[in-house]
């Protein structure tokens, strides 16, 4: 048995995925119906993170679908690939959308068509209040394509909806004074309202002592 798809527990599931990957390579349009059915036809459940909702990390069905996306990326030219990735997302339910977001990193975003679709889908995901989508988008390396303002807004959305900042791509390296100010403002607003301040603000504020100091007596301890 090959080492491929070791994240799948059963030989039956590995064989099913292997057949579907071959199908997508031979006939890329098949992904339109294989992708939605992937959880049912291959595997579903918590992935390595143990989180069944896929906030803390990809679920099994996410990993299966990312393999299908990888096969697609090898089979289509950039413009066609960009169109199909957009279609999979727009026609997808929340689980399918989360998988597309988890799979954005397999796209060659050096190509402008693919960079454009990645930016569009990241923006859409971060506009929702769905923690599965917000988390998957924020964890993607393709957030490097976002301008500073959009990226900061994504980080703030994570704080707001309870997505752990520890899995957000760009934390702490990309954090800047403006993000630190936004995090401190958010923490102060919560403290004034008598509501708990998310511990995760520390992940940003500990690099910006002047903003952390604004919290004063409200400051949260590690």
């Amino acid at each position: 048995m090959s080492e491929e798809y070791a994240f799948l527990g059963s030989a039956e599931a590995r064989e099913a995925l292997s057949a579907q990957v071959a199908d997508v390579r031979a006939r890329p349009a098949r992904i339109a119906v294989l992708f939605p059915a992937a959880a049912r036809s291959v595997a579903r459940g918590p992935g390595p993170s143990g989180d069944p909702d896929g906030v803390a990390g990809p679920t099994l069905e996410d990993l299966v679908r990312v393999e299908l996306l990888t096969a697609l990326a090898g089979a289509l030219a950039p413009a066609e690939l960009a169109r199909e990735v957009g279609d999979l997302y727009r026609h997808g339910d929340a689980g399918e959308r989360r998988a597309v977001l988890r799979g954005l990193d397999v796209l060659d975003t050096g190509r402008e068509e693919l960079a454009a679709v990645a930016r569009e889908l990241l923006a859409d995901a971060v506009r929702t209040n769905d923690t599965r989508l917000v988390a998957a988008a924020s964890a993607s390396g393709t957030t490097a394509l976002l301008d500073a303002h959009s990226w900061r807004q994504g980080v703030l959305k994570c704080l707001f909806t309870g997505v752990p900042l520890g899995s957000v791509a760009g934390i702490p390296d990309r954090a800047d004074a403006e993000l630190a100010r936004m995090c401190a403002d958010h923490a102060l607003e919560r403290a004034v309202a008598g509501r708990p301040v998310p511990d995760d603000v520390r992940l940003v504020l500990r690099h910006f002592p002047e903003q952390a100091a604004r919290l004063g007596t409200h400051r949260t301890e590690a």
Binding site: A32, V33, L34, F35, P36, A37, A39, R40, H91, D93
Partner: peptide, 10 residues
Amino acid sequence: DILPRYLAKD
């Protein structure tokens, strides 16, 4: 034309 994408869903 869009039906197949839905008919595949859980």
